[in-house]
Nucleic acid binder design. Structure first.
Lengths: 231, 231
DNA sequence: TAATCTAAATGAACGTCATTCATTTAGTGA
DNA sequence: TCACTAAATGAATGACGTTCATTTAGATTA
């Protein structure tokens, strides 16, 4: 062993340079990537979720990720699936329909209000082979069937509820002064007055009030629109 | 005039090189930028709307745009404003409340279903000094007031409706097979059956059916939730 | 056992994009 | 007349997603 002062393989505490080539045990997998992505997003938001930062947090070169996902979109899909598993569908098993929908919708909005950049992904991507997503939809459908809903309208009702939930998730992130009219207040007196009235009630941008109002309206309306004629 | 064969200032049909420096008359303005951006988006979608392509379509260097907008986000706001002016609020002037809301909501969804990348912009940006947007909100608010709605609930109702509209705009762009369960059909029998039932009814992904169902439910529910107690 | 194939890593490179900056020219106000 | 501002060019920058050649390790096959 000639002139060996610098150890080639160090077991040092800090990020020992890994040499090229397949490592002895795999460093990456869907689970690791998903978990690291979620941690990044939780700490610094979606702006911080880049392939580089993701790789760095996994102590790996960016290109290594592409052995496990085809694109960044794939990473987002992994995260989406993980989050879908957190949506509470338990109420559909044993609670009355209206209450179950309430619990589910609130949970759904709560989960994704911190993940609005995923909404385009969820809304536009086929659910094919997305197990958590499919399990959620199946539980919801089962709850609708249990409540006596006609099968041919269930998907439309779920889609309508989901549309409202997605929109409401955006709303949670709106700034408090989103409806402040500025210099044009004088030209929009009706709106300006209504905004002022609302500000007096709750703080300023109470997304929750609008969500609860819309949710109960949707539930009541759906119930009346579909179930009544079936009686 | 020595050896002048190549004209310095050509009036040729094709893109005569403009030399540096302020031109005799301004080439750009908010109106030109907005119109060019809308044309680009209409032809090739939002993926094609880059600062470079926008500049090229205006026959200008990309950096010239920054004399008129601070960022690409500013361009999106200009486009949003232009589109808000296309939303039909006329029904609030002379039609019954429920019908007016229907007309407005359909128009709103129709306008933005071809512009879903703007939804995060609309949903998260203050309306301050956005005249078209404010005029729309004012007309809607006026319609609610005319129908006897209590002022303190109007904004919440509008926000709830908008949330549904935004979500529904995404839905329009979902692929036809978005609910195809793939290999996991066996594990989600309730959902799979409901999806199959729906496919038999309308074509496949009929976003319109879900929208109409949700819209009438929301309108009925809002009307009952708010107006009834006031009687 | 040797040869071959595939999996999983590195690191260099690329192309696209939004944005900034120095520079140039034209109008405007003191 | 002089300074200032407006509006253009063109070069440069820094992210970011992605690809590719290369390296190494394990798995399969002859």
């Amino acid at each position: 062993m000639p002139d060996g002062v610098l150890p080639r393989k160090s077991v040092s505490t800090k990020s020992a340079r890994r040499r090229a080539g397949r490592p002895l045990h795999a460093l990456l997998g869907h689970a690791q990537i998903t978990s690291a992505a979620l941690k990044l997003v939780s700490k610094d938001g979606y702006k911080a979720l880049t392939m580089s930062s993701l790789a760095k947090s996994l102590n790996v070169a960016p290109s290594a990720l592409y052995n496990h996902v085809r694109s960044k979109q794939d990473v987002l899909v992994l995260v989406e699936e993980a989050l879908m598993g957190r949506v509470d569908v338990t109420a559909f098993a044993n609670r009355p329909w209206a209450e179950a929908v309430s619990v589910w919708a609130r949970s759904y909005r709560n989960v994704f209000s911190a993940h609005v950049p995923l909404i385009p992904v969820i809304a536009l991507l086929p659910v094919t082979n997305a197990s958590q997503t499919l399990l959620m939809y199946d539980a919801v459908t089962k709850g609708f069937l249990r409540a006596g809903w006609p099968q041919e309208h269930i998907i439309d009702a779920i889609v309508a509820l989901e549309s409202f939930i997605y929109g409401s998730a955006y709303d949670v992130n709106a700034p408090a002064d989103i409806f402040s009219p500025g210099d044009l207040a004088g030209q929009t007196p009706n709106f300006t007055a209504a905004v002022a009235h609302r500000s007096n009630q709750h703080g300023a941008n109470d997304a929750d009030a609008a969500f609860e109002l819309g949710l109960s309206a949707l539930i009541a309306g759906l119930s009346a629109t579909i179930q009544k004629p079936a009686l």
